[in-house]
Design a protein around this nucleic acid. Structure first.
Lengths: 303, 303
DNA sequence: CCACTCAATACCTGCAAGGTATGATCAAGC
DNA sequence: GCTTGATCATACCTTGCAGGTATTGAGTGG
């Protein structure tokens, strides 16, 4: 049996007339007669009563008509759904994020993606940089977000945003009275750095920047992410260099100050990473959304 | 698209290897490759990622696999159900019966049929003889039960049972003292006859029998069926000739007596009628059951 | 670097789906 | 009562496509 048989059968059952059904199917009458005969023979069931006025369904035929319509509808639905899945409009996207990613452009980006592709289920996984790369290779995630990514030959990178740095400082610190702090002035303040874990990372960036500014920071504490870092600033552990977007974190007793006399290469970037060999339409759809996102809202990211 | 495509797709998805799938399908590898390519092209969706180790499903492929299995199961179920319907094991049988048919072999017969074909829904319609023939011609019923059927060229007849007659008589009637009553002795008793409605019928049989016995019955009342007839006997309206099976009706004050000196052609038959041109397997199954019924229980009908 | 494993391609063959012409059957109409 | 028209069935031809064999291409692992 064949889907063609079902199509033909339904047509004949609906027209109750082989000739008209054949016309509707754009074939001639004899092949249709034969296909119906074949179908009956294969099932071993008489589906139609041949009358001089046309074809009338038997009881078994009535039943088969229901089933055939059912099957045809299911086939149509299956192709439709599969095609949507093939266009990245339906399915599941696993995304790797890092600890404090929630402060950044990521939520806005994910929201934009969900609006465009409401039937794609986005699943977030909190993973370190190394874990993200591992997970990408094992296909456990499709995209990851991270900073300071070294190029790899099987992993593609797409920069999402760039931000400058601010210093988080206790409000009652003398330096905090200045609206802008010169970079070198941080020299004698104990510094909180993050993240612990996989290197190179934001921590190395900070240390490097201090180096180019001519001093070595006195590290008071290493913490896991920006949130903890700013919390420790509030507790008086020292100052902490954070990306601009961390201003979302409003801790009592902590203020953010812009820096002057900053070294070159002062910006940190947020990028998303993915398998270069991944042809998945979901990935394509996501990267497209990232590109559009960069075009439509670059401004808010530099605030 | 084709059911073959689905079968092939499922095989490849399950084996994750075209060669093994081809072996399982008893075809060679290249046609299978082509069929999968065709399927992908027709859907416009990449279903598999070709790896050097074999074929891996894409997300869209995973989804399509579910759908394909679903469809294949539905097709299998549809053929199975249709075949059962085609063998008369599934469906609906509309049966025409007459008023007092409930007294007769019909309940036993219908019970036997339901035991054999539990998935056939039997629907009873109370119809007069003429209505039954009309309903058969319009296919509103598939079989009918009746007595005294004149042959018709489009209606087939199959005799179910034959019974003799008894007389229903008031218990305090002098005649009722005799264990057996001679037919001619009924001559001066008023007689209740049935049914009203379409002729020729049981009523004509009774009048005819009286004629051959040499008298004309004095008809006290015409009623619709045997039940009413016996009820009127209880009320003193007269005697009533009934088929043996009417002894099921036990009215207070009414006894049944056998008849002696009966005319020839004293028996009444119960037959079922059907369209001669009806090839329905349900009808075949029913008539078969009737035949078996006649074979297995002829005795109880003559009690 | 070679052998091995897969999938893809090229090309051929045969069957079955589709087409045309015609037959068989029945109902309705002049 | 024969004819006409409608309907499904049959006969026979043609062709497109499924399936086969042989081979190539690509990537992996010893």
């Amino acid at each position: 049996m064949d889907l063609r048989h079902l199509r033909y059968f339904v047509a004949v059952a609906e027209e109750e007339n082989i000739g008209r059904a054949a016309a509707r199917l754009h074939i001639s009458q004899p092949p249709l007669t034969r296909q119906i005969q074949q179908l009956e023979e294969e099932l071993g069931v008489t589906l139609f009563i041949r009358t001089p006025r046309g074809m009338a369904l038997t009881q078994a035929g009535e039943l088969f008509l229901e089933e055939a319509r059912n099957i045809r509808a299911l086939v149509e639905q299956a192709t439709e759904r599969t095609q949507r899945a093939g266009q990245g409009k339906l399915g599941r996207l696993d995304v790797g994020i890092f600890g404090s990613a929630i402060l950044d452009a990521i939520p806005k980006l994910l929201l934009a993606f969900r609006n465009r592709y409401p039937d794609v289920k986005v699943v977030l996984h909190t993973l370190t940089k190394a874990e993200q790369i591992e997970a990408l290779r094992q296909r456990r995630i499709t995209v990851g977000f991270n900073r300071m990514l070294a190029p790899l030959d099987d992993i593609g990178v797409c920069q999402v945003s760039t931000e400058g740095l601010l210093v988080a400082i206790q409000a009652d610190d003398p330096l905090a009275r200045q609206p802008v702090i010169r970079f070198a002035e941080l020299q004698h303040h104990p510094m909180i750095v993050f993240p612990t874990g996989a290197r190179p990372s934001f921590i190395d960036k900070v240390i490097g920047l201090c180096g180019t500014a001519g001093f070595q920071p006195s590290i008071s504490q290493e913490v896991g992410d920006a949130v903890t870092g700013v919390a420790l600033v509030a507790s008086g552990f020292g100052v902490c260099l954070v990306p601009e977007s961390a201003t979302t974190l409003q801790f009592p007793g902590v203020v953010y100050r812009a820096l002057a006399d900053t070294p070159p290469n002062f910006f940190v970037d947020l990028s998303c990473i993915y398998r270069k060999d991944d042809q998945s339409p979901l990935l394509g759809a996501f990267l497209e959304t990232v590109e559009d996102f960069k075009k439509t809202c670059p401004a808010p990211l530099r605030v």
